[in-house]
């Protein structure tokens, strides 16, 4: 760095030019990646819907709008049919709700699937959390599938590194326990849900997920489902 060019004029021009170049580079990259980021988010949302309502057709989710509330963090919920939306013979197999709860160190987003009567939880999927690794983050922990040595022998280690295949085959144990239970069977005594196998050392995360999921179904059933026709 040379001594020359320390005049105020020079400093302003150089800094402004660098900022302008940075702005251009960022703008171009944003434009280039925006489509792909949106696709990824959509794909992730659809994957969560299919996990919580496995019996629904992959094109059978109809987005419904609703005011923002406890059960609808994004002002929407979904009707799910067992045939693609265009097919009139499709039957309603349930609803999917997107709820949000306050965890220990982050917002926790949960997608919940519920049967057409709004009573039985079909499944839940945590779509976002940044809880403490080793404690609250275990709500997304998947049981280890075999040992490292098997993986090396089978040549699947590289896939594990890229996170391929694993998410599809197994469901986190904490989330699996919600499947097939009536929402009103989750009773809270004091600070603890009686029939949930909580996460060790992470009561707040456990309760945040359960509150969000159970509360969403309860509110949806009492506020929306009761007044809609046909049910």
């Amino acid at each position: 760095m040379k001594k020359r060019g320390d005049s105020a004029y020079n400093m302003i021009v150089v800094l402004a030019l660098i900022c302008a170049a940075a702005g251009l580079a960022l703008g171009a990259t944003y434009r280039a990646t925006r489509g792909r980021i949106e696709t990824q988010q959509l794909r992730e949302r659809m994957a969560a819907l299919r996990i919580v309502l496995p019996e629904a057709h992959k094109d059978g989710f109809r987005e419904m709008s609703t005011p923002k509330s406890a059960f609808a963090a994004e002002s929407r919920y979904y009707e799910a049919y067992d045939k693609a939306l265009g097919d009139a013979s499709g039957e309603l197999v349930g609803y999917a709700l997107e709820a949000e709860g306050d965890g220990y160190s982050s917002k926790i987003r949960v997608t919940v699937g519920v049967d057409p009567k709004g009573e039985v939880i079909r499944g839940i999927k945590i779509t976002f959390q940044q809880e403490t690794p080793g404690l609250g983050a275990n709500c997304e922990a998947i049981e280890a599938e075999g040992t490292l040595w098997d993986a090396i022998a089978e040549g699947t280690l590289w896939n594990a590194f890229l996170r391929k295949g694993k998410e599809k085959t197994s469901e986190p144990r904490f989330q699996a326990q919600f499947r097939g239970k009536m929402f009103d069977s989750f009773v809270k005594v004091g600070n603890k849900y009686m029939n949930i196998d909580g996460l060790t050392g992470a009561t707040i995360t456990t309760n945040a997920v359960a509150d969000a999921a159970v509360g969403a179904v309860e509110e949806f059933t009492k506020r929306i489902l009761k007044y809609s026709d046909g049910t």
């Binding site: 760095m1 320390d6 150089v14 660098i18 900022c19």
Partner: peptide, 20 residues
Amino acid sequence: MRGVIPRKVRIPCFIVVIAT
């Protein structure tokens, strides 16, 4: 850009580049 960046504003310049 080491010959172009004025010494007095080098840190802001570095930070802009890094943040980009």
